[in-house]
Amino acid sequence: MTINTFLQIGLFSAILLACVKPLGLFMASVYLGRPTLLDRLIRPLESWFYRIAGIDSKSEMTWLQYASSLLTFSFVSLIAVYGIQRLQCLLPLNPESLDAVSPDSSFNTAISFVTNTNWQGYSGESTMSYLTQMLALTVQNFMSAAAGMAALVALIRAFVRQETNLLGNFWVDLVRGTIYILLPLSLGLAIILVSQGVVQTFSPYREVALLELTTTSDGKSITTQKIATGPAASQVAIKQLGTNGGGFFNANSAHPFENPTPLSNLLQVLSILLIPAALCLTFGEMVGDRRQGWALLAAMSIVFFIMLGISLYAENQGNSAFAKLGVDQAVSDLQSGGNMEGKEVRFGITNSVLWSVATASASNGSVNSMHDSYTPLGGLVAMWLIQLDEVIFGGVGSGLYGMIIFAIATVFMAGLMVGRTPEYLGKKIGAFEMKMASLVIMLPCVVVLLGTAISVMLAQGRETISNPGPHGFSQVLYAFSSAANNNGSAFAGLGANTPFYNGILGLSMLIGRFWMLLPVLAIAGSLAEKKKIPNSNGTLPTHTPLFVVLLIAVVVIVGALSFFPALALGPIVEHILWTKN
């Protein structure tokens, strides 16, 4: 690692930290209904939305109504996204005359975008028309992110309110999250990205003459190349800010039209963590104690930077197979050194690894390098961050509500150790909350391990694995970790666009999203009905460094216990074989 590495990580961290507080407080104002700077511009639009949709913005919902609204909205969205893909050949804005997407791929992609996963078994430029990319996929990037934030806000309200069964109005939270937070940020980012060279056009793909002529294996000469373009910038902005991650092009943010310059790279990687980090402050502000938000942010950041350090170390070591061949992998003025397989030369090790750790921890899933080509340890870092239930920053809304569930589990365990009644933010944690919290924590683990086991046992699962041995197993384990935790990144190498994987990964994404949301909202409903109890000498403070350490320990131990045996069959044994050879 060079000084340049530390400078770049330092710059990234400083900008992120500087943005967390203002954005977090702004989002709190949006959800608390306080006046904001954007009111004059957006309030009329908001009122218009409510009028045409027939929403009574003053009425509130119980947790059951809130959950039912979220589920109904998601179901309708799924059908719409499925339908647009199947009918795209008949719809406008399809200059390449692309055919309808296959039924199994439409099923998988609809689920993927509605659940905020953005797992992509298809290649964007050769599969999706401009209309599908915009109307189906980009719209869901906004909606799925806003729905996750709405669920989080309902949970936060449960800590603030007492003796009520009302948690707010899902439709109001959805609309406000979209038009006050996601749309303005995305608009600003998209404009900057266009200035950097990210394409935004309805023009058909361009046929250009090759600078260097080439021939195919059967001797046919190739003189031209088709360059895919499209309305990419508007999709790229929200794919990062909404922690969606689905690329406009197949190569995602390694494609020069999605991520052309060092500035576009910095802004995109910042955007991945921006809202999940700022929501911690939103939480602190809404519960009336900002220290609570800082404590959760500190826990996330500590794990993030430790994992970043491990991945940077591993990738800077280079590839031992190349070392045996005498390939120079040392840092010099001419090369960044280390393991550069699958990485863009223009980004080097630091910016590739920073992106990989950010995208894995934040449930984003976009990539600017290929995780399949990382060293076993580098790949393990990305995979394990996903397997920690996506609570180290996590998805917008979903990451923080996952972390709050871990905080509830932590106060419960601390209570067991010292014989105190567990309470969090003045609410007693009872048997029902712990049952639901256990479901939230264990469900993704079950889906990941079961899905992986089924896939490696069946011929349909094994036949599209591109690597033999532990690396092939890692590809499958990574795919299920990514789907069930709604991350969406792929290890690459696994041929996942088959009816088998489209079906089973689709089901994993559905369970990972909706069966997690139900217990979270049930906890919210239960806590809102409880009285707030004042702090006493017996209360475990939840804003102190001790609590941060306890919380990290619970997250890490649960993650380690659940996945160590599976990881031992994949990246760990691969690392041992690697170092041995």
Binding site: D104, I111, K435
Partner: peptide
Amino acid sequence: MDFVWLLALGCFFVVTFLLLNGISSLRTDK
């Protein structure tokens, strides 16, 4: 084929709404 995939989606949401009811009754039972 569309029917099969849409049916799968429908079935998942029916099960999910049943689960929602189940969790809700679990709370009432406590």
